[in-house]
């Protein structure tokens, strides 16, 4: 059916006005790379996956011919049952899977039009452009301050003014500044679970990445901490392209602009989140999102 005038209201793409727009101080704190800043308005595709297949060992193919585009500065959610390949694809975006023996791939992945498997590309430089937040918060056994600037320390940054600015900017962007500004030198391990996860987000964005990958970032958190992270994700998309893996359907509907459903290593359907959750094209998608799967 191709009748835009007849599309249900729920399917009309909503413009989510993040609170970052209302609180300009948050948006102003995080600058973006020159490439992103120069991108034309209208959300161009930032990550392009072209006929990409991935094998953990030669005989086990876990991703099959995935082709998708992930728009710039929007939140894209990957959903699907366990083992469907969503985390594997996410970890390919910063080539974390390279660390596993015997893996191989076919096809291409482009980040801002750059082939991430290009032989001339330095993996470290790629990973600097892509921050990652994991299911379980993993702060280092150091102070809050040191956690945030860890990547700057590793890259040899010693100027206190820059380090201080980074800590404040990152913690503000991760909505953690107010709670921690008076105890920056306390151990990060003394924070609550939700605060630790926000600290990990602050650490991930300290180096001003272009993309933020989040692998079930709220699965170990209580509803309040989850709500804070979700609010944060909505704010972060003003400056970052966010890709989130989640098993929580409601979370996907709340935070994402686009959603992709994976099953058995294949991309079944990708669409605007409101469309995918109100009127999916594929029966398999409807079965999964409405709890009929299996």
């Amino acid at each position: 059916m191709n009748l835009t005038s007849l599309l249900p209201i729920a399917m009309q793409k909503e413009t989510i006005k993040s609170s970052a727009q209302q609180d300009e101080s948050v948006g102003a704190e995080v600058s973006v790379s020159a490439d992103v800043a120069e991108s034309p308005a209208g959300r161009p595709d930032y990550i392009k996956v072209c006929d990409f297949s991935f094998n953990y060992v030669p005989a086990v193919r876990v991703l099959h011919n995935i082709t998708m585009e992930i728009p710039e500065r929007q939140v894209t959610a990957f959903i699907g049952p366990s083992g469907c390949g969503k985390t594997t694809l996410l970890r390919n975006f910063n080539r974390m899977n390279d660390l596993i023996d015997g893996v191989s791939h076919e096809g291409k992945i482009y980040v801002n039009d750059q082939d991430i498997y290009d032989r001339n590309l330095e993996v470290i430089s790629l990973r600097k452009r892509i921050g990652m937040v994991f299911q379980k918060s993993n702060p280092f056994p150091k102070s809050i301050y040191e956690n945030v600037i860890y990547s700057l320390r590793v890259s040899g940054q010693k100027k206190k003014a820059i380090l201080d600015e980074t800590v404040e900017r990152s913690l503000k962007s991760a909505a953690l500044w107010e709670e921690t500004k008076d105890r920056l030198h306390d151990s990060a391990l003394g924070l609550s679970g939700g605060q630790m996860q926000r600290l990990c987000i602050a650490r991930a964005i300290a180096n001003r990445p272009e993309i933020l990958l989040m692998d079930e970032p709220c699965s170990a958190l209580d509803p309040i901490a989850t709500a804070k992270i979700e609010e944060l994700i909505t704010e972060l998309k003003e400056n970052f392209t966010v890709v989130i893996v989640t098993h929580n359907m409601q979370q996907a509907t709340r935070v994402s602009d686009r959603a992709a459903y994976f099953y058995l290593g294949k991309l079944v359907e990708m669409d605007d989140t409101t469309k995918l959750f109100s009127n999916p094209e594929q029966k398999e998608t409807e079965d999964y999102i409405s709890g009929r799967f299996g």
């Binding site: 059916m1 009748l3 005038s5 007849l6 249900p8 399917m11 009127n279």
Partner: peptide
Amino acid sequence: FVESATDIRHVGADALKEFSSE
């Protein structure tokens, strides 16, 4: 709406005709 996820309220005769022919 239940069956086709299409909101046909207040869309006008032409759009209804088009929908019916789909």
